[in-house]
Amino acid sequence: MEKQFVDLLSEELKLQEAVSGEHTRHMNITFAEAKRVASQYQREAEKCNAATETCEEARERAEAFLSKERKVTALWEQRARKMGWEGE
């Protein structure tokens, strides 16, 4: 009877080890996949940040160019008015 009990305990321990091993394997696979996806999202975020910086720089250049154009337009309009032009 005692041998049966020891055998049952031994069998239970083997099953628990098997379940634990499978759980650890599944956890490692899930963790590796999560790291891969996180890395992919990080790369995409870096691309997005770079594109945003490029767009922001282009917007700043366009804004500066527009400001210069408005000044030139105002200067020409002022000259035209001095010469008798009446705008809308």
Rank of each mutant, 00 (worst) to 15 (best):
M1K: 15
E2Y: 05
E2F: 12
K3N: 11
K3T: 07
Q4D: 15
Q4F: 06
F5G: 12
F5R: 15
F5L: 14
V6N: 10
V6F: 06
V6L: 14
D7A: 07
L8Q: 14
L8I: 11
L8F: 10
L9C: 07
S10P: 04
S10L: 08
E11R: 02
E11A: 05
E11I: 09
K14T: 05
K14E: 06
K14Q: 05
A18F: 10
S20P: 00
S20T: 11
G21R: 07
G21F: 05
H23I: 15
H23S: 10
T24M: 06
T24W: 05
R25V: 07
R25Q: 13
H26V: 13
M27E: 07
M27Y: 03
M27Q: 14
M27V: 04
M27N: 11
M27T: 12
M27I: 03
N28Y: 04
I29Q: 09
T30I: 04
F31S: 06
A32E: 00
A32G: 06
E33S: 14
E33D: 12
A34K: 14
K35S: 09
R36D: 09
R36Q: 12
V37P: 02
V37W: 05
A38Y: 10
A38G: 11
A38K: 10
Q40C: 01
Y41T: 02
Q42D: 07
Q42K: 15
R43H: 12
R43Q: 12
E44G: 03
A45N: 08
A45F: 05
E46G: 08
E46W: 11
E46Q: 15
C48V: 08
C48W: 05
N49P: 01
A50C: 03
A50R: 02
A50G: 04
A51I: 08
A51S: 03
A51P: 00
T52A: 15
T52I: 13
T54R: 11
C55K: 06
C55P: 01
E56N: 13
E56P: 00
E57I: 13
A58Q: 08
R59T: 10
R59D: 09
R59Y: 07
E60I: 15
E60W: 03
R61Y: 10
R61T: 07
A62I: 10
A62N: 13
A62W: 13
F65S: 06
F65T: 13
L66A: 13
L66F: 08
S67D: 12
S67K: 13
S67G: 06
K68Y: 01
R70P: 02
R70T: 06
R70M: 15
R70V: 01
R70Q: 12
K71P: 00
K71G: 08
V72W: 04
V72Y: 05
V72E: 02
L75R: 09
W76P: 01
E77V: 04
R79V: 03
K82F: 01
K82L: 07
M83F: 05
W85L: 00
E86H: 12
E86M: 14
E86Y: 01
G87L: 03
E88V: 07
